[in-house]
């Protein structure tokens, strides 16, 4: 689930530029080390992510929550991603409907099923994953930068000195807000994209609005899969990004690494979760 931690480690060992004439055993050792170090970093990062996830879940159900901070985080997440999501999802809706409209025109010329086919696809697949990837870039970086700079300025150490669990204090509010707001934003994404598609279909292919607005092909299973994915993404992004922040070290450069790691790792997490939930969903509710 990490690429960046690995890049950094191999980068720092590789950048010495020495050992070009190294004798054989040490070169083999070098190769093993250069393969081993990234693998080690990947495994230890994955381990840390799961540990952080466990703690986040634990403290979500145990102890006092900072509800004012949860609300603040909800606001931050919404504020950071609303415009971005609106623009991207609207264009996505226009592009998809325009392109598939062109195909439909060439083959059958029957536009009546367009909206009906598009909506379940949007709910089950496009909207959760595109929305989550955008949230990962926009919100994940923010989380990693905030927490990372608290780590490198020793504020997290100061919290621990004052008997405060960093995951409980910093990640849990973002975890709760992340789950809730990802759901809200994905529902919103679906709506924006569908409406943009509806408008495109109307303008280019003269599909009446009420023909496009057809929810008959949406199964309960589509909703269930879409919501499950969204909830998983909503949990993964704050945990993975928060862990990247907590793992930061070494001044402002460290914060930079943490934000990059947050985007890469949470995007990877989103894609993998999409694959897993999608796969399980397909086995449980096969499409006919």
């Amino acid at each position: 689930m990490t690429g960046v931690g690995a890049d950094r480690s191999s980068g720092s060992t590789g950048s010495t530029g020495e050992g070009e004439r190294a004798d054989r055993p040490s070169r083999i050792a070098d190769i093993l080390a250069s393969v081993g170090a990234p693998v080690f970093y990947v495994l230890s990062t994955v381990g840390d992510v799961f540990k952080t996830f466990g703690l986040a879940v634990y403290y979500t159900f145990r102890g006092k929550k900072r509800w004012d901070e949860v609300i603040n985080q909800c606001y931050q997440i919404g504020n950071r991603s609303l415009v971005f999501i609106t623009v991207v999802m609207a264009f996505l809706g226009m592009i998809l409907i325009f392109q598939s409209g062109l195909q439909v025109k060439r083959i059958t010329g029957d536009f009546s099923q367009m909206g009906a086919v598009y909506l379940p696809l949007l709910i089950r697949q496009f909207s959760p994953i595109i929305g989550a990837l955008m949230i990962a870039t926009r919100v994940g970086t923010g989380i990693a930068a905030e927490i990372g700079s608290m780590v490198v300025t020793e504020q997290v150490d100061a919290l621990r000195m004052n008997a405060t669990q960093p995951v409980k204090y910093l990640i849990v509010p973002r975890f709760i807000a992340g789950i809730f707001m990802t759901l809200v934003l994905v529902v919103y994404s679906t709506l924006v994209s569908f409406l943009a598609g509806m408008l495109t279909a109307h303008v280019y292919f003269e599909v009446p609005y009420d023909t496009f607005w057809d929810i008959s092909l949406v199964r309960w299973a589509d909703l269930l899969i879409g919501v499950t994915k969204t909830l998983c993404f909503g949990m993964a992004i704050p945990v993975v990004s928060g862990q990247a922040g907590l793992a930061a070290f070494g001044g402002s450069e460290g914060v930079g690494w943490a934000t990059t790691a947050a985007v890469v790792n949470s995007s990877l997490a989103v894609i993998m979760l999409d694959f897993v939930v999608g796969g399980v969903g397909f086995m449980v509710f096969p499409t006919n």
Binding site: T153, E154, Q155, D157, A158, R160, M161, N162, A163, T164
Partner: peptide, 29 residues
């Protein structure tokens, strides 16, 4: 950590709290 306090290099006061709340934090926690 109650018996061994630490003054960090960066001072590490919490920017979002008043001086009073910063100092009161260990007492509260």
């Amino acid at each position: 950590r109650k018996r061994c306090a630490m003054v960090f290099q960066n001072s590490t006061l919490f920017d979002s709290m008043t001086l009073l709340d910063n100092v009161a934090l260990p007492i509260r926690k």
